[in-house]
Nucleic acid binder design. Structure first.
Lengths: 201, 201
DNA sequence: AAACCGATTGACTGGTCAGTCAGCCAGGGA
DNA sequence: TCCCTGGCTGACTGACCAGTCAATCGGTTT
């Protein structure tokens, strides 16, 4: 038979998916490896068959998702019509990621992106790449004359990304409502806020 | 003699100050209580004489600083000339807090404000009060007609606060340079970005 | 049907700390 | 001079948990 890694792959996936649920529910630090195994309906030791360590499970989850995010921003940059549209597509991808799988995005943001002393440090280079891609969009916008030149692109990218992340954090911790209609509105408002500003034109 | 709590008070303060340094250097989770005691030049047990637990040390640090921040925003709201000036004063206070004591602000932000699964949850109500105060400034600005009305004040406060926090995070983790001249520039740029937007007027 | 092998199991171990506690000591009062 | 008090000391303990490993299972190959 043509090798059947199906079961094996399934179990690995099963563990990753279970880990998302448990990490989202309890946070990385207070989930024991046995919690992941239980949630996945799998023996304790099997987690170590597929992953070098508990950390490696989270690392894998982060890498899977972040590479998609980086690709999406880079595609937005390549295909977008205007800098504004590029920013909207980037923010849109992140918002949609949350809409599609809030638990995973919660884990990514809470345990990695904002966990600057643990996994945030480990993945700093990858996280930075997202900032840089956004900064590039801004810089190109400035060069094209559609963005003002007195705001440093790096600074602008931090402000933009910070706003997006804070918005997701607000949804995650129910500081602000996350009804389905809020998501599309949010995409538009993020871009309006950053590009047009709070003051009327 | 008129009771001399001096020594006692000094030791307590000494422990808090040492904790800031150690937390900033190693992060809360990887500092042992013995690290704090060593840094303070004090016996292990004394930490427990003044604080109920390791957590309580961080809680105390957070409360001390955050109450100042809330007071500063509320004062900015009371005394500020325009909504824009109020936002600038609020952002300015946070930036100055960082300039004045980067280690403390690093601890507050990294270990509490952004640590949504641990201390962030404990102090969610206090953190929220800051968002609310900013939202109020925005709402008043809208009522007065100087801010556009199609952006929800709560949403705007998240974007504003998120931008500020991300900026500090950038300084803290040396993603962006933090020379002394950058601080004053940052205050102005934050307000320009949020109020005027990236697109030229 | 026997050897083989990767997937799977879960009891066990070693190391790590947070928090406890039994007392020590300095200096003020009798 | 001796006691007394409370700030102060630091060795110790109990709990917790990541990661190990020897054994078992089930399907495939010869």
């Amino acid at each position: 038979m043509a090798k059947a890694p199906t079961a094996a792959v399934d179990k690995r996936r099963q563990i990753l998916d279970a880990a998302v649920r448990v990490f989202a529910r309890q946070g990385f630090h207070s989930t024991r490896v046995s919690d992941i195994a239980d949630e996945a309906g799998v023996a304790y030791g099997l987690v170590y068959h597929y992953f070098k360590s508990k950390d490696e499970v989270l690392n894998e989850l982060f890498r899977e998702r972040w590479s998609l995010l980086l690709a999406a921003i880079e595609e937005a940059d390549r295909e977008g019509d205007s800098p504004r549209a590029k920013l909207e597509a980037s923010a849109g991808f992140i918002v949609d990621s949350y809409r599609h799988d809030p638990e995973l995005m919660k884990v990514i943001i809470v345990e990695v992106t904002r966990a600057a002393n643990s996994f945030g440090r480990t993945h700093l280079a990858e996280i930075r790449r997202a900032y840089d891609s956004i900064a590039k969009i801004v810089a190109d916008g400035q060069a094209a004359g559609v963005f003002r030149r007195d705001i440093d692109p790096t600074f602008a990218s931090m402000a933009f990304y910070g706003a997006v992340e804070q918005l997701l954090s607000g949804w995650i911790f129910e500081v602000i409502p996350a009804a389905d209609s809020d998501f599309d509105e949010a995409k538009a408002l993020l871009v309006t806020t950053i590009c047009d500003g709070l003051e009327p034109r």
